[in-house]
Design a binder for these strands. Structure first.
Length: 837
RNA sequence: GCGAGAGUGGCGGAACUGGUAGACGCACUGGACUUAGAAUCCAGCGGUUCAUCCGUGGGGGUUCAAUUCCCCCCUCUCGCACCA
């Protein structure tokens, strides 16, 4: 190895080999130390690490390494979210099996992560596509089925024609597939659902537990997505009862406006439509309307420019309070899968109903009267949705509408016509996927017994490794007799296996728990390990998972807790969440099509892993997006060169000491005192920025200042013992503070400093308050709040002395000449402000 | 429309509890070293009419003092949105 040039690649490979050989970051739950579980969202093994991964994992690695140095027993695992569509596409392209492509990518990406020197406990590595992993998911599925948390339902589903599979509601973004941006179609299919709505209330309420630990906007997004609204269910009796159906129920958040109802609107998909129009002379027109609306795709249907349209069904209901006849309409704006698929129309107090009523000449009845401004239905140009007093509302007349909400609901309940209730926007999670590369759903279809769950002792149901993916992307499983042919677990007769696989978001909903006992074979989790490690103390990943993954994982945690797999007091999986920003290039997201990709491997070859890590952390605070800058990484590289050179230039004066080890007795001159003070100041600031605030950019800036100070100090400092100790201590602090960010160069210099132990076992240095004290301080002098000068005064100077010094100052005198001094504000150690006019 | 966040030099960003706005880095400029360049080191670097005045998206307010607190407005980013 060369003696004085900084050769990052040599150094980094040397230390990485050592870490690997000694399993340096392995941990166990059998420990007396306090635990810290640091987790970054695991990657999909697409083939190569990209800059977004580097940023994500560099942030996590700093957190993990800092916590270790603070004495925590740190769990910092890594694995692979290995099921998914790209593997199938690649398999088609290369005429191979998705497993082969996936495992090759994992090997490649593991090597890339190791080349970045991340401190993972590799002995816990998992890949979700391995039967040892997904067999437990199949077991959860069976337990969910027993508990009614899994059910089968036929309903219109989101179908992506390009991916040949259904999608969950969360995976449809603006009517497009989250993965390939194809237009999502609606298709009637029988699918498996996870009853996430059973946990709707808990998922919403427990967001309060995450307050402070999770970004506000993620909490807001989840609240929004769960979408709980309070209101009432109100039943309207059908004028002509249908077989087994006498009433139509609506959900409303405004029961106080019930006396203003002038029509009811049903979704075109409402199950009763065909019965309602039976015998109506214009039934065919209604059928044509329904057909037209149903044929619209989701994007068109949900567009906000879509005109409100409706049609009368010929049927009527009776108002629960007045007994009035209310016409039943169908409307294209009514959602079949929200509430009851039916709404009451109150044109005077709901803008959408108002527009509908004006269009179809339906009556507008004012029942809420705003203070001092009575409404005239004929003159209204828009609905009045504000507060007021109830009028034309029978027994409720004169009541403030805010009270009326509950009063009406109580009366409805007493009369058997409704009740106060809530509605969620959240829907159950469709987990069926018509794809090959996923965990098989462990049920069979038997002609005799119907749908039968697989026996637990038959798990795992493994994916065949001899499958050949169809050219058009459809799953080969339905055509594979070897897979589908099976015996019924109930009657022993011939049966067919389910060929749908589970949504890959199921695997990522519990992987964090599997890491706590990743090699366990006789069960999914070791309860002692779960109790020790869970919850994850710090979770780090992209904000794009704010709803999908983070909501599903929270749901799984609660469901597995209730099934006894998780400790009963484990409420939430992730105590703290950091959503890191994206790495952009030229202002936009890096992508192949834009050709603006910066490959981490090229940067590592050119500058070394330490420099790449340093730049990713220095460029911006972690939550913010940052634009990759070629000259910026040059700057990061320059800084590490500077640290290296400082060490080499001064090698002869270094002693093998720790950070903050010099004492006041070592200080024999001003330069040494200033340097020692700067060292302690840096340890204080960088330490707080790294462990408390997660502001790595300012922590690095502080260390840069210390290094600059050392460059300036070195010429003025001598070779005597005291100066050497002060200078060496500062160097040791630089290396210790920087080691979580740039571990390789720091370990190397630490070793060259003469230490035999590793820096990762070094305790975090502790700054000394007395070292921060100064003899003199600079005080700002203000006149009327404006800075007019500064003076250096003894640190202990009292208020009177400060005021006197300020009045003596020439600049102050110039700015107060001819004025009367009214007041003098003295903030010791900071400033003197003279108020004069 | 609702919700969340942001707006500071040429650029990325700093200022944590109201107390010297612009730390640190990039870019740029000058100097040293060098035959020259690169690298390195040192210094400068918001604007200005330069002992002045202006300046943290705009306007008001509180205060001795506001990037920071309060009110109103503008712009941008993200999420949700015919959810009854």
């Amino acid at each position: 190895m060369s003696q004085d040039r900084y050769t990052p690649n040599e150094i980094e490979l040397k230390w990485q080999a050592r870490w690997q050989a000694s399993n340096a970051f392995a941990c166990s739950h059998e420990s007396d130390k306090p635990k810290y579980y640091c987790l970054e969202m695991f990657p999909y093994p697409s083939g190569n690490i990209h800059m977004g991964h580097v940023r994500n994992y560099s942030i996590g690695d700093v957190v993990a390494r800092v916590k270790r140095m603070h004495g925590y027993n740190v769990l910092h695992p890594m694995g692979w979210d290995a099921f998914g569509l790209p593997a199938e596409n690649a398999a088609i392209k290369h005429k191979t099996h998705p497993a082969k492509w996936t495992y090759a990518n994992i090997d490649n990406m593991r090597a890339q992560l190791q080349r970045l020197g991340y401190s993972y406990d590799w002995s816990r590595e998992t890949a979700t596509c391995r039967p040892e992993y997904y067999r437990w998911e199949q077991e959860f599925f069976l337990r969910f089925l027993e508990k009614g948390l899994v059910y089968r339902k036929k309903a219109p589903q989101n179908w992506c024609p390009s991916c040949h599979t259904v999608l969950a509601n969360e995976q449809v973004i603006d009517g497009l597939c989250w993965r390939c941006d194809s237009r999502v179609e609606q298709k009637d299919l029988t699918q498996w659902f996870l009853r996430i709505t059973a946990y709707g209330d808990e998922l919403l309420e427990d967001l309060a537990r995450l307050e402070g630990g999770w970004p506000e906007r993620v909490l807001a997004m989840q609240r929004n997505w769960i979408g709980k609204s309070h209101g009432a269910a109100i039943a309207f009796t059908l004028e002509k009862p249908l077989p087994g159906k006498e009433r139509i129920e609506v959900f409303t958040t405004r029961p106080d406006t019930v006396f203003g109802v002038s029509f009811l609107t049903l979704a075109p998909e409402h199950e009763l439509v065909e019965h309602l129009i039976d015998g109506y002379e214009k039934a065919d027109e209604v059928r044509a309307f329904v057909a037209r609306i149903r044929n619209m795709d989701r994007l068109e249907r949900q567009s906000d420019v879509l005109e409100k349209e409706g049609i009368f069904t010929g049927a009527y209901v009776r108002h629960p309070f007045t007994g009035e006849r209310v016409p039943l309409w169908l409307g294209n704006f009514v959602l079949a899968d929200y509430g009851t698929g039916a709404v009451m129309g109150v044109p005077a107090h709901d803008q959408r109903d108002f527009e509908f009523a004006r269009k179809y000449a339906l009556p507008v009845k004012v029942v809420i009267s705003p203070k001092d401004a009575p409404l005239d239905p004929a003159a209204m140009t828009e609905a009045y949705a504000g507060e007021g007093v109830m009028i034309h509302s029978g027994e409720f007349d004169g009541m403030p509408n805010t009270e009326g909400k509950q009063a009406v609901a109580r009366k409805l309940e007493a009369d058997g016509n409704g009740r106060a209730t809530t509605q969620f926007r959240l829907r159950d999670w469709n987990i069926s996927r018509q794809r090959f590369w996923g965990a098989p759903i462990p049920v069979v279809y038997c002609d005799a017994c119907g749908v039968v769950p697989e026996k637990r002792e038959n798990l795992p149901i493994t994916l065949p490794l001899d499958a050949q993916i169809n050219e058009d992307g459809r799953s080969p499983l339905p055509q594979m007799d070897s897979f589908t042919r099976c015996t019924c677990p109930q009657c022993g007769g011939p049966a067919r296996r389910e060929t749908d696989t589970m949504d890959t978001f199921v695997e990522s909903s519990w992987y964090f728990a599997r890491y706590t006992s990743a090699r366990k074979e006789d069960g999914p989790f070791d309860m002692d390990a779960l109790r020790y490690w869970m919850p994850v103390d710090q979770y780090i990943g992209g904000v794009e998972h704010a709803i999908l993954h983070l909501l599903y994982a929270r749901f799984f945690t609660k469901a597995l807790r209730d099934l006894g797999y998780f400790p009963p007091d484990l409420e939430e999986p992730f105590s703290r969440l950091l959503t890191q920003g994206m790495v952009l290039k030229d202002g936009s997201k890096m992508s192949k099509s834009k050709g603006n990709i910066v490959a981490p491997s090229e940067m590592i070859d050119k500058y070394g892993a330490d420099t790449v890590r340093l730049f990713c952390l220095f460029a911006a605070p972690p939550e913010r997006d940052f634009d990759w800058s070629d000259s910026g990484i040059e700057g990061a590289s320059r800084f590490l060169q500077r640290v290296w050179r400082l060490f080499m230039d001064e090698e002869s004066r270094f002693l093998p000491v720790r950070g903050c080890s010099s004492t006041a007795a070592d200080v024999q001159n001003d330069t040494a005192r200033d340097l020692r003070r700067r060292e302690h100041l840096t340890v204080k600031k960088a330490g707080e920025d790294m462990s408390r605030r997660f502001q790595f950019n300012t922590a690095i800036a502080a260390v840069m200042e210390l290094v600059n100070a050392m460059y300036l100090a070195r010429e003025k400092m001598g070779q005597d013992e005291g100066d050497r100790r002060v200078f060496s201590s500062a160097m040791a602090s630089v290396l210790t503070l920087l080691s979580p960010i740039t571990p390789h160069i720091c370990e190397e210099l630490w070793e060259r400093l003469g230490h035999t132990s590793s820096l990762q076992d070094e305790p975090w240095p502790v700054w000394d308050e007395t070292a921060l004290q100064q003899d003199s301080v600079t005080i700002a002098l203000q006149v009327n709040g404006k800075l007019r000068g500064t003076i250096d005064v003894p640190a202990q100077a009292d208020k009177a002395a400060l005021e006197a010094a300020a009045r003596d100052d020439a600049a102050v005198q110039r700015h107060t000449a001819g004025l009367t001094i009214r007041k003098v504000i003295v903030v010791p150690g900071k400033l003197v402000n003279i108020v004069a006019n």
